[in-house]
Amino acid sequence: MKIKVDLDACLQHGQCVIAAPEIFSFDDDGNLQWKAAPDEALRDDAEAAADACPEQAIIVE
């Protein structure tokens, strides 16, 4: 599974961090960090994060 985030669209709502904390987080400067190729077992979380992102910035492949 691959995760892409369109950082031009991302407005740092943090909904992804809440839906899938094992994939998404903010670093100390408040920048969004994510695992680009997380384990397949996290697919449901990844899809939930993509659904929860108000800017539709997350793409799960």
Binding site: G14, V17, P21
Partner: peptide, 11 residues
């Protein structure tokens, strides 16, 4: 608010 601190409070 900073998303970092909100995420903590959310938990």
């Amino acid at each position: 608010a900073r998303p970092n601190s909100l995420a903590r409070h959310h938990a």
